[in-house]
Design a protein around this nucleic acid. Structure first.
Length: 546
RNA sequence: GGUCCCGUCGUCUAGUGGCCCAGGACGCCGCCCUCUCAAGGCGGUAACGCCGGUUCGACUCCGGUCGGGACUACCA
């Protein structure tokens, strides 16, 4: 055990003791059952959709229990900090309307950035040192590698524990000598774990869990050669979650195996243990197996993907909530968003994220929106991600409105052709001559393999006798007539009966017109499209291929 | 290697011993509607990983096994 003098000489003379922090951050005065939660992203990269998932759960639990939810930036790894990450977190969480109930401006439990809490951690490290629950470790990287190698050779478990913990029982003289020589050190927790010991605890999602007790003397304070002395995740977790008076820690299940250590830390520090809820991470199918959604490999792992594609926040939230609690997926969207997420409703296994399902949800959601709302959202999105489209929209707001109204207003089944705002250009862009690219190649794939000659014939026959839609015009008759003349079957059924007798049915013929007019195989009612375009533009597009 | 977690249709899941030769949703396929694409309506497809045990009875309980995943850092 180190002498008090030596220990104190390691810290600022005016460093307050734990009682100071205890007083400064008193227990919260909250109604019974209120949950205090936190989301603690590490600004070492961009926000992961799994982060949004967990943050959403945190915020929802706090909201519905009358508690508090806070965002804590966990930047103890100063070496891996990424420029702009904190701002990106804020943007991403804002997009999904997940906002903390307290922050540096309004909260009493800050600062909410770990690098600003260095002094607090130091107080508790010193306390542990004074009580001999921690010790100084001067092992170098080479020492550590050496230990690992020997353990491997001996078939022992890896780690810094027992007889392998070379500084665990070092004498004060040894420590003084190293200190004098200016050698850097870390502070390690003196684990009370015994060989063969077991721990058990209750996880709010998984129930009773047990594991081998922790025996590893984990590092709690990083190297003394760093300008800012910060703790490791484990120690910061214990100190912060206690002092911020967090009642429930919701985190990804990769932390499950660290729980024994965390429990020891809470106990050694004299803190009440927190309740844990370990959620399974979002997964991705990879060949025949599945793995955690990876930021490196999967574009949809990044929150940016959803924002850039312009997925409506409500649709993504609805999808994520359904993943969290299956029964929410059975509810209509408004109810699902309003119904509290329950810890007991989680599945212990990690779900695969299914973009096809999200698309379906999103299309359904957009179909419920009035044209005005869609216009506003598309315009906002386009300003950031498709400036040319934004310009066109701003120049022709009336056209844009009319376009969005087609088959959306006063119809029993509104079109479901918009899943994300990025769909606007491929789905409706052709209405705007400024951004429309005419189809000029009769062999274009979009014609579905119809003979190029026939494509040309359809186009020129159509153009030659074209009549704009009007009160006295049966617009589609034009197509029907030319289709008959060119030998197309009058309907799909007739064609199906004898496919050899026709080049195709009226369906194929009208698809030629559709593709020429819109550049797409999918569009609203052709007569309405033609009407919106005007005679000149219709003819220009049809003749582009002749 | 060790420890821990997980395992129902392709996917998300319902199911807490008989209501299940397993229900819903998405997907896919087909049919219908329709002058054309969608949308919509109707129908179909498809699963309890495997082996034992407990029980009158097991998707549900127990054991094993296989498979998948996480952790095993001065990363979080």
């Amino acid at each position: 055990m180190l002498s008090p003098d030596l220990i104190d000489s390691l810290f600022p003379a005016d460093l307050p003791g734990p009682e100071h922090w205890e007083k400064r951050y008193p227990p919260r005065d909250l109604p019974p059952g209120a949950q205090v939660t936190r989301f603690g992203p590490s600004p070492t990269g961009y926000l992961h959709i799994g982060g949004v998932y967990v943050a959403m759960v945190d915020a929802d639990l706090a909201l519905h229990s009358g508690g508090a939810y806070l965002l804590r930036i966990e930047d103890t790894d100063q070496a891996r900090l990424t420029e702009g990450a904190t701002e990106q977190f804020a943007d991403g969480l804002t997009y999904f309307t997940i906002s903390p109930t307290e922050d540096d401006l309004s909260g009493h439990y800050g600062p909410y950035v770990q690098s600003s809490r260095a002094e607090i951690y130091l107080s508790y490290v010193r306390e542990l040192l004074r009580r001999d629950r921690a010790y100084l470790d001067f092992a170098t990287k080479a020492d550590l590698q050496d230990i690992t190698a020997k353990q491997r050779a001996a078939g022992a478990l890896p780690g810094y524990y027992g007889k392998w913990a070379i500084w665990r029982d070092a004498s004060e003289d040894q420590v003084r000598e190293k200190l004098l020589a200016g050698e850097p050190y870390v502070v390690r927790f003196r684990s009370p774990g015994l060989s063969g010991g077991r721990v058990s605890y209750t996880d709010a999602i998984r129930g009773e869990l047990s594991a081998d007790d922790n025996r590893n003397d984990a590092v709690i304070l990083k190297s003394s050669d760093q300008p800012l002395r910060l703790p490791t995740y484990h120690f910061a977790h214990a100190v912060d979650d206690h002092l911020m008076r967090i009642s429930l820690v919701v985190r990804s299940d990769e932390w499950l195996s660290s729980v024994p250590l965390h429990l020891q830390l809470f106990d050694a520090l004299g803190f009440d243990r927190v309740q844990y809820a370990h959620v399974a991470p979002l997964m991705k199918q990879d060949g025949s197996s599945r793995r955690k959604l990876s930021k490196r490999k999967d574009p949809e792992a990044s929150v940016g993907f959803f924002i850039e594609q312009g997925y409506p926040a409500e649709a993504v939230q609805y999808y994520l909530r359904g993943l969290a609690n299956g029964r929410l997926a059975e509810l209509p969207l408004p109810e699902a968003l309003a119904t509290p997420i329950e810890l007991s409703g989680f599945n212990a296994a990690g779900p695969l994220v299914d973009l096809v399902k999200l698309d379906d949800i999103s299309a359904d959601y957009v179909a419920t929106l009035p044209a005005d709302a869609i216009m506003g959202q598309v315009a906002t999105w386009a300003e950031a991600y498709d400036p040319a489209l934004a310009e066109v929209l701003a120049a022709e707001p009336d056209l844009a409105r009319r376009v969005l109204d087609i088959e959306r207003v006063d119809v029993p089944n509104p079109r479901k052709d918009l899943r994300r705002w990025a769909d606007f250009r491929p789905v409706y862009g052709y209405f705007f001559p400024q951004i429309f690219v005419p189809v000029t190649d009769p062999a274009d794939d979009r014609f579905g393999g119809l003979a190029p000659d026939l494509v040309r014939q359809v186009a020129s026959a159509f153009a030659d006798q074209y009549q704009a839609p009007g009160p006295d015009v049966e617009w589609f008759n034009q197509i029907r007539e030319l289709a008959t003349q060119l030998g197309f079957a009058p309907n799909a059924k007739t064609y199906k009966k004898d496919p050899e007798a026709y080049p195709g049915s009226i369906r194929e013929a009208s698809q030629v017109i559709r593709v020429l007019l819109t550049g797409s195989g999918r569009s609203p009612d052709l007569a309405q499209v033609a009407g919106a375009l005007g005679v000149d533009e219709v003819l220009r597009r049809i003749r582009a291929v002749v």
